[in-house]
Simulated assay, not measured.
Amino acid sequence: MDMPILILLTTQILLPAFFLVWLWLPRPADRLAWAMRVFYGACYVAFISVIGRWDFLSSALAVALPILFLACAALSFTRVYNRAWDTSTSMVRSHGFTAAMAVFFLALTARALSGYGYQETAVNLAFPFGAGTYYIGQGGSTTSINHHHADQSQRFALDIVALNALGARASGLMPKNLSDYVVYDREVKSPCTGVAISTHDGVENNRISQTNTEEPPGNYIILACGTARIMLAHFEKGSIAVTGGGIVTQGQTLGRVGNSGNSTEPHLHMHAYIGGTVDYNAGQGVPMTFDGRFLVRGSTVTIP
């Protein structure tokens, strides 16, 4: 099993299951022991609900898991409600580690949530896809929820996938066929009216889990929309439908989603920057909003 999948299953399935079972077994000695288990479990569930990649399993689980945990916590209280509040000889010795770990995950959650906002002036764009439900795999203003944020020009970049009826991005955890990914070969539409100042085509798709680090964006388009430059990357080879210097209108088809460049699976990479012109590494990244909405990891967008 691939290491990323093993980590995902551990953090998003096994550990939440542990905290659910721990509410019941072994039976808490007193109400304080129960409360500390609930506190620790709630902090972890909050953390993984925010930073988890739920599109691998089902985006619905990000909402279902906290509800399930709260319900189980309430039910588990019936086993200890008539017990003493604290029977331990030392609160620090009995509950210090649990409290410290709970605070640790609470701090990580707060750090991730700090990426839900921005201070800079944003560029408002149209969402680059047609009908369907889409999920933001990377996005936000902190590295906790957006691995692009450490890069100056890509600070507010998005990685976008599409979801099936089950809320998953693909048929299986890591299928080998590109066509098993919902977003693959889907039309990408221009998020604004402007000029295609640079395009590149001819880069082959990668196999799943492999990347092309020599040509990071793969097949891409850079649009000039007002003072902002919008880069869209990882297109399917031969699908780019505009030429450099051509005028594009909002909603016009630009190409189709592929898996070219530094991409382990089909998705659309998109970021906005100012300065740098056609050198997407030299610009200063700026936030993007879509109908005024700032998208972050875990955001879903449904286009009727």
Results as ranks from 00 to 15, higher is better:
residue 9 L to C: 13
residue 54 W to C: 05
residue 206 N to S: 09
residue 94 S to P: 00
residue 46 A to P: 00
residue 232 L to H: 08
residue 67 I to Y: 13
residue 187 E to Y: 15
residue 298 G to R: 00
residue 249 T to K: 05
residue 66 P to W: 09
residue 226 G to K: 15
residue 76 S to W: 05
residue 123 V to G: 05
residue 266 P to I: 01
residue 265 E to K: 01
residue 298 G to T: 02
residue 22 W to I: 12
residue 18 F to N: 07
residue 138 Q to P: 01
residue 298 G to Y: 01
residue 77 F to R: 12
residue 287 P to C: 03
residue 114 S to R: 13
residue 153 S to N: 11
residue 247 I to A: 13
residue 84 A to M: 06
residue 4 P to L: 05
residue 30 D to V: 02
residue 203 V to Q: 14
residue 108 L to Y: 04
residue 300 T to N: 00
residue 215 E to P: 07
residue 17 A to F: 14
residue 189 K to T: 07
residue 136 I to S: 01
residue 60 A to I: 13
residue 133 T to D: 09
residue 152 Q to D: 13
residue 284 Q to P: 02
residue 217 P to Q: 08
residue 3 M to L: 12
residue 31 R to T: 10
residue 263 S to D: 06
residue 94 S to R: 00
residue 70 L to N: 06
residue 4 P to N: 09
residue 84 A to E: 09
residue 304 P to L: 04
residue 83 R to C: 10
residue 157 A to R: 03
residue 73 A to S: 03
residue 121 T to R: 14
residue 25 L to G: 10
residue 75 L to V: 15
residue 49 S to R: 02
residue 270 M to G: 00
residue 146 N to Q: 11
residue 50 V to G: 00
residue 89 T to W: 04
residue 226 G to E: 15
residue 77 F to G: 04
residue 144 S to H: 13
residue 141 S to L: 12
residue 267 H to Q: 10
residue 81 Y to K: 12
residue 243 T to L: 09
residue 209 S to V: 06
residue 14 L to D: 13
residue 109 T to L: 00
residue 71 A to K: 02
residue 263 S to Y: 05
residue 191 P to M: 03
residue 215 E to D: 14
residue 229 R to K: 15
residue 53 R to K: 07
residue 206 N to A: 03
residue 169 R to F: 04
residue 45 V to C: 00
residue 125 L to G: 08
residue 20 L to N: 11
residue 110 A to T: 12
residue 247 I to L: 08
residue 229 R to F: 14
residue 289 T to G: 00
residue 219 N to Y: 05
residue 197 I to C: 10
residue 89 T to C: 06
residue 52 G to N: 03
residue 57 L to Q: 09
residue 110 A to V: 13
residue 233 A to L: 04
residue 2 D to G: 08
residue 220 Y to E: 03
residue 108 L to I: 01
residue 262 N to L: 14
residue 187 E to G: 10
residue 216 P to Q: 11
residue 213 T to D: 14
residue 146 N to W: 07
residue 6 L to I: 14
residue 160 I to M: 00
residue 146 N to M: 08
residue 173 L to W: 07
residue 18 F to E: 11
residue 55 D to K: 04
residue 156 F to Y: 09
residue 209 S to G: 04
residue 33 A to H: 07
residue 167 G to Q: 04
residue 149 H to R: 08
residue 115 G to E: 11
residue 61 L to W: 15
residue 255 G to K: 03
residue 202 G to C: 00
residue 58 S to F: 09
residue 268 L to H: 10
residue 246 G to S: 11
residue 282 A to L: 08
residue 213 T to R: 15
residue 228 A to H: 15
residue 184 Y to D: 01
residue 40 Y to L: 12
residue 63 V to Y: 13
residue 133 T to V: 12
residue 286 V to T: 04
residue 106 L to Q: 09
residue 169 R to L: 11
residue 244 G to Q: 07
residue 15 L to V: 15
residue 214 E to W: 10
residue 225 C to M: 08
residue 178 L to W: 01
residue 121 T to L: 10
residue 107 A to E: 04
residue 72 C to P: 05
residue 281 N to R: 13
residue 163 L to T: 12
residue 24 W to D: 05
residue 183 V to H: 14
residue 5 I to M: 15
